[in-house]
Design a protein around this nucleic acid. Structure first.
Lengths: 224, 224
DNA sequence: TCAAAAGTGTTAGATTTACACCCATGA
DNA sequence: TCATGGGTGTAAATCTAACACTTTTGA
């Protein structure tokens, strides 16, 4: 069809920004590039969009490839398409961010793909425009976290209120008053206290909580 | 380079969501498609990304082509890339929204490109996923308008407070208390009252205001 | 003279922030 | 026994929301 064929095509890729939370720090999964151009540079993990797959599917596939996990919380950050962003060829890339519980992530796969968790505030210079992707991804993720209870995706199913607080502190980069934080949590019925006690992180033991999605859907009054 | 060539390429296009404000209504510029597939259907205006242009440049060029205006406020909405979104071929499209003052827009160009202003709340069914693009674009634009003084881009250089209020009401779809609104405006030094009086929309006459970007940059305390 | 839009403050209620001590337990 | 993290309430300050009347002037 002439209408299309008079225009040129480009390679399309997807880069995934995988956020994790560990030791009270927000982390990102990055690795050393295994291919040229840019071999050896720090980089996000990515992949090319195939002819028969949508971009969201491609992102989900890439995430699965890297982590072995499906149904991760994932959102598009945006398209990055400066002419010379890729030193090899013209490649337009669409960035996505995803949230995972670091404990769900098999170390084996980490090694196979040459990726590792790096502190958000100790990011090295990355390949191409990946630093910018992460910066934008973080902004988007923060924004989302303010209005939707997605933080749970970064924690184990059962978590203590201190863990949850540390998570919000890490993501927003500022301390939160403990009493005020807990007061707000109490108002959200979908954050359920369980009978279980975590004895790992404190001597006294801390109550374990759980996110109840069903309750949330009935009354999504989230505000943090 | 084998690394790239084993993957397939796609057509990349840009679609622009142009918002305008007229008669107290938020409007979008859409037109009847002049080409196949989808000839005759309502559609956003768009264009293909050329080999030698970045996607932001492409969006700016497309905007210029359509409106004759440069340096419009413009932001990316995101990439749309379901496999079958375009009924003809595989085309991934990146949506952008832009804000213009409808009075800056030459009617001649409107006719040439077969586009017209349509009320946001009277949008017809559009070609492909363009309705979804507009929905997402509106959400993004609203969000931005809450935190940055971009609304001025939809108004003439000089405007009355009532105009400004109606604009915010139209964008957010709800009425605002006049006194509370004006109180908040008074606190923003970058919204300057001029000596000029608008006698068009009221008998008594209303003071004309102006957005002072320099003052805003010195003290960007925007909140609406 | 009257219709239509401009302009102007106050108060109650809701929300947000600041703040300090006791508890339970393992080492 | 003591160091560590868990757990709890109140009051001041700030912000938000509701609300009504006077002014000016062209028709």
């Amino acid at each position: 069809m002439a209408y299309y064929s008079e225009h040129s095509k480009v390679w399309l890729s997807v880069d995934v920004i995988i956020f994790g939370f560990e030791q009270n720090k927000l982390k990102v999964l990055i690795g050393r590039r295994q291919m040229d151009p840019g071999r050896g540079e720090w980089s996000l993990y990515g992949g090319f969009v195939a002819a028969n797959e949508g971009i969201d599917e491609c992102a989900a596939r890439t995430l699965y490839e890297l982590t072995g996990l499906n149904h991760l919380f994932m959102r598009q950050v945006g398209a990055f398409g400066s002419v010379d962003r890729d030193p090899g060829e013209r490649v337009v890339s669409i960035a996505y961010y995803a949230l995972i519980n670091v404990k769900d992530y098999n170390e084996q796969l980490q090694k196979e793909h040459h990726v590792q968790w790096v502190d958000m505030d100790q990011l090295p210079k990355l390949y191409s425009d990946h630093n910018e992707m992460i910066a934008q991804g973080l902004r988007k993720m923060r924004q989302k976290m303010r209005t939707e209870p997605i933080g749970f995706r970064l924690l184990p199913k059962l978590f203590t209120l201190t863990q949850l607080q540390r998570l919000y502190e890490a993501v927003n980069g500022q301390e939160i008053d403990k009493r005020n934080f807990r007061k707000r949590i109490k108002e959200m019925d979908f954050i359920e206290k369980t009978e279980l006690i975590d004895k790992v992180t404190s001597k006294r033991g801390a109550a374990l909580y759980r996110f109840n999605n069903k309750v949330y859907n009935e009354d999504p009054n989230f505000k943090l």
